[in-house]
């Protein structure tokens, strides 16, 4: 079942938390789940390619597979968490994908600890990211969550549809004029 943008993103407009002395702080982190999405999104999805990045049948719980998107040479990690999460796709709503370029200084992270859903520590400055919590910096020095890949499942295929949040190195995810866009899937 294809997943729409509204299922993926973003409850920043609806969620809030009162902290301490009464300061109201919006909590963009609180992702909308399937049943209560509000349609808000900041991603410029329409112009990203749709590309096949994996298959449900070959992705086991705890696996980490790597693919390029939206440009060739721009790496990402695809994992099946084994735990239903907001924005997770597949029959168990637990398949997610993120740019694996560290949002600290851009080093690729390939270490994945499945038990805690942690990508990292980064080989450069040791940041690690929680892939079950929207790619938040669980510990370390990066200044934003990992860029998240918007996915859908069609049959056995897992498809990337777009990117939410800035990919390391870019000023505009869609302004890679000199980069080669990955092939569109079917």
């Amino acid at each position: 079942m294809p997943l729409s943008r509204r299922d993926f993103l973003l409850a920043g407009t609806a969620a809030g938390a009162t902290i301490g002395v009464g300061v109201l702080v919006p909590l963009g982190f609180v992702l909308a789940d399937d049943d209560d999405a509000n349609g808000a999104t900041g991603a410029s999805l329409a112009t990203f390619p749709r590309a096949r990045v994996g298959s449900v049948s070959s992705l086991g719980v705890g696996d980490a597979q790597f693919f390029d998107y939206p440009y060739e040479g721009t790496p990402n990690v695809l994992v099946k968490l084994g735990e239903r999460v907001p924005g997770g796709v597949g029959p168990d709503n637990d398949i997610v994908a993120y740019s694996n370029l560290c949002t600290h200084m851009g080093c690729p992270i390939t270490t994945y600890e499945a038990d805690s859903h942690t990508l990292g520590p980064c080989p450069c400055h040791f940041s690690s990211f929680d892939l079950s919590r929207d790619g938040i910096v669980g510990f370390g020095q990066a200044t934003q969550n990992l860029a998240r890949i918007l996915l859908e499942v069609d049959g056995d295929g897992i498809y990337a549809l777009g990117v939410y949040r800035l990919i390391y190195g870019h000023a505009d995810n869609l302004a890679g004029e000199d980069l080669v866009v990955v092939s569109e899937g079917v």
């Binding site: 200084m105 851009g106 200044t143 934003q144 800035l166 190195g169 000023a171 890679g176």
Partner: peptide, 26 residues
């Protein structure tokens, strides 16, 4: 995004460890 067109003097996308990437929170 060209080096000649921004104050950082670097082409975007920047490279790993460039120290010249501006994250959304910067």
């Amino acid at each position: 995004t060209s080096a000649a067109d921004n104050a950082l003097g670097v082409d975007f996308p920047t490279t790993t460890l460039s120290g010249r990437w501006i994250s959304e929170t910067m």
